[in-house]
Design a binder for these strands. Structure first.
Lengths: 214, 214
DNA sequence: TAACAAAAGTGGTCTGACCACTTTTCATTA
DNA sequence: TAATGAAAAGTGGTCAGACCACTTTTGTTA
């Protein structure tokens, strides 16, 4: 009652303590953490509780472990949170069509962002892709979309998109067919010229075509 | 050798096994998982390994635990993630910016979908919300956005949005201030009238205002 | 000095033991 | 019969100790 976190479980406390230790000792990504036995003694808890905390952090990708070698702080930018959650959330949605729809939401936004940004829509990537398409070289649909999302420089969106791609029943794979060439050309041209509306139109038609082909 | 993931740690395997069990048995949020001792026997591993897996999932907010009462599949709304992430990950400015940006992508799309659909933009919810705003009743920002996303009927987007909402440094909480009233009124009116462009404009201004207020 | 084997350190896993708490069971009682 | 309440069973929370497998350090030997 009177205590704020009296009910808080040891392993949760330990996660917080570990954060403190990491900060106090100025452990940087790649740096080594004290051993499990050391931490247990230092924090006055059992080794198993320390392990539960460490394993939680490991699943999140916050730390890395070398069997027999020690525990190391990972680059927090590489956290696996999104991936882990996706594993639990996405399977339920795989057959609902929502995955596909959600992917398109992200893609449409990326198109707008790129087309609306002078710097982004002038990137040499689009020209090079367009060139490949015209030359008849195989261009992966997936790559084009990826380039756009990467260009918007939002790692989180990129991660989500990758995961959705993985769970989508009709993933963006394979080589563009002759039929797609027209749409692709139109799309890339308009993208390069900074025409979001036109690029979006071409994109919609392109995607609709794909949907029908299956 | 012959096994694919022989090196994979038991607790990681167990997380996957649990995922499988949850799906196979069709355990829904709020449903009860087998006990730790049961799981240990069933999966042929030690209870400590089961616990390491369960604790990891608990930290992620995928399950909830009642001391003496059992383990339950959680509603994705409740996790400690906010805390954990805030401490380890979110200090990165870019990261939190991405969370915010991603949320807005989903929200903008929901606005468009609602405003472009005759049936959706005529839902009585908007009228009722608008009424509340005008009357000066407290209207949660979060609720308005949620109603829109729910209206689009994409469970996955809704789930992702909920999760992002948790990570956001500045979640959509609290009551709308007087200052917001103007934007909200404009936004809801245009939404109801099926004016996506105008509704989006109002939304952008509304959100920008929020961003500045912090 | 280089190479190598022993020792120490460390994570990985299991078992068993208590404790605290909740749910179920079932005999007692109104 | 129905309500009550205490015992029993079930369950999560935590700890200690034991091995194992692997890595790092140490120290001796060639």
């Amino acid at each position: 009652m009177t205590e704020n976190q009296s009910k808080s479980k040891v392993f949760i406390e330990t996660v917080n303590d570990l954060k403190g230790i990491i900060q106090e000792e100025g452990i940087k990504p790649g740096g080594k953490l004290p051993s499990e036995r050391m931490l247990a003694e230092r924090l006055g808890v059992g080794r198993s509780s320390v392990r539960e905390a460490l394993r939680s952090m490991e699943l999140l990708g916050l730390i890395q472990t070398k069997h027999g070698g020690g525990t190391y702080l990972a680059d927090y930018r590489n956290h696996q949170l999104v991936e882990v959650l996706a594993q639990f959330i996405l399977p339920d949605e795989a057959e609902s069509g929502h995955v596909f729809a959600t992917q398109r939401i992200l893609e449409r936004d990326a198109i707008c962002e790129v087309a609306l940004d002078d710097a982004l829509c002038k990137l040499p990537v689009w020209e090079s892709l367009l060139h490949n398409v015209i030359e008849g070289q195989s261009v992966m649909r997936e790559d084009i979309i990826r380039e756009m999302i990467v260009a918007t420089n939002n790692r989180l969106v990129y991660k989500i998109w990758l995961l959705l791609n993985q769970y989508a029943l009709r993933p963006y794979k394979g080589v563009s067919t002759a039929n797609e060439k027209v749409h692709l050309e139109r799309f890339l041209s308009n993208l390069r010229m900074g025409q979001p509306t036109l690029a979006l139109e071409a994109y919609e038609e392109w995607v609709d075509t794909l949907a029908k082909e299956r």
